[in-house]
C-alpha cells in the first residue's frame, strides 16, 4: 500500500519534468526556436552521455567538485563552531553578532574581484568565495538552533551530573542538529550556485568555464551540458545530505 503511494508520488513528480522536456522539444520541432539557439533535448542528453566518459569532462567536474567541497566544508566547520560559540558565550556573542550583522547581507560575489586580486585565479579564490557565501546561512541557523535549545534538556543533563563544559557537546549540539542541517542544506545549494558563477566569471576549468567557452563559440548544445550537470550534482549532493539528515535526526519529530 505504502510503496504504491510512493511510486504514485514519483510518477506524479515526473510529469512536470516530462512536460518541460516535451515543451522544449515542441519549441524546436515546430520551429519556434532555431536549433542553433535551442538544441533539441535528445541532442543535449546524447552529448551529456558522450561527454560523461571523456577525461576532459571528468577533469572539469573534478575541478568544480574540489572547489565546492573545499568551500562548503570550511563553511560548515566555521559556521557550526562560531554559531555554537556565540550562543554559549556572551563575550563571543557580543563580538560576533555585529560582525555577522554587517557581513551576512553583503553580496559576497562583489568581493570576488578583491579575492582574485589577493588570492589569484586558481582554486583558492573560488574556495574562499564559496565558503564566504555558504558560511552565513549555516552560522545563523546554528546560532538559532543552539540559542533555542529547551532549557529543561540542559537542566536534565546537568542534574544527571554532566559537567558544564560537556553540555555543549552532549546536549546543545545534538539538540541544535535539525537547525544546523537546515542551514547546511541552504549552504549547499548556495555553494553549487556560487562555484558555478565564479567559474563563469574567471576560470580556466570547471563546469562554469565550460559554459562560457561554449557561449563564446555559440555551441548551444555544449552550453546546456554543464547546466544539466550542475543540476544533477546538486540533486545527488542534496540526496546525500537528506540521507544523512534522516539518519541523524531519526529521533526528532520533524524528521
Amino acid at each position: 500500500m505504502k510503496t504504491n503511494a510512493l511510486t504514485g508520488d514519483v510518477l506524479l513528480g515526473l510529469v512536470p519534468i516530462a512536460l518541460v522536456i516535451a515543451l522544449w522539444q515542441g519549441l524546436v520541432s515546430f520551429g519556434f526556436a532555431p536549433a542553433t539557439l535551442l538544441p533539441p533535448p535528445g541532442l543535449v542528453f546524447a552529448r551529456l552521455l558522450q561527454q560523461l566518459v571523456t577525461s576532459t569532462f571528468h577533469h572539469e567536474i573534478a575541478a568544480t567538485l574540489i572547489r565546492l567541497f573545499g568551500g562548503f566544508s570550511i563553511a560548515v566547520i566555521l559556521g557550526v563552531s562560531i554559531g555554537i560559540a556565540a550562543a554559549a558565550n556572551p563575550a563571543i556573542n557580543a563580538v560576533v553578532r555585529p560582525i555577522v550583522r554587517v557581513l551576512a547581507p553583503l553580496p559576497k560575489v562583489a568581493l570576488y574581484p578583491a579575492l582574485l586580486l589577493l588570492l589569484g585565479f586558481k582554486h583558492e579564490s573560488k574556495i574562499v568565495l564559496v565558503a564566504a557565501d555558504a558560511l552565513f546561512p549555516i552560522l545563523l541557523s546554528t546560532y538559532y538552533g543552539a540559542s533555542t535549545v529547551e532549557q529543561k534538556l540542559i537542566w536534565s543533563a546537568m542534574a544527571a551530573g554532566t559537567p558544564r563544559r560537556e553540555i555543549l557537546f552532549k546536549v546543545v549540539l545534538p539538540a541544535a542538529m535539525p537547525s544546523i542541517l537546515t542551514g547546511c542544506r541552504i549552504g549547499l545549494v548556495i555553494s553549487c550556485i556560487v562555484v558555478f558563477l565564479a567559474e563563469m566569471i574567471t576560470s580556466t576549468d570547471g563546469l562554469g568555464h565550460m559554459l562560457v567557452t561554449a557561449a563564446r563559440t555559440f555551441q548551444a548544445v555544449d552550453m546546456f551540458v554543464p547546466l544539466i550537470t550542475i543540476s544533477l550534482l546538486g540533486l545527488i549532493l542534496n540526496g546525500l545530505l537528506q540521507a544523512l539528515r534522516s539518519y541523524l535526526l531519526r529521533g526528532f519529530p520533524e524528521a
Partner: peptide, 29 residues
C-alpha cells in the same frame, strides 16, 4: 501531498542551477 509530489522534483532539479548562468540562454530569447 499531491501538489507537493507534482512540483517537488522539478524544483529540486532547478534549485541548484545558478540562475544567472541562464543569462546567456535567456538573453538569446
Amino acid at each position: 501531498r499531491a501538489v507537493a509530489a507534482f512540483f517537488n522534483p522539478l524544483l529540486m532539479v532547478i534549485y541548484p542551477v545558478p540562475k544567472a548562468a541562464l543569462m546567456p540562454i535567456i538573453m538569446l530569447w
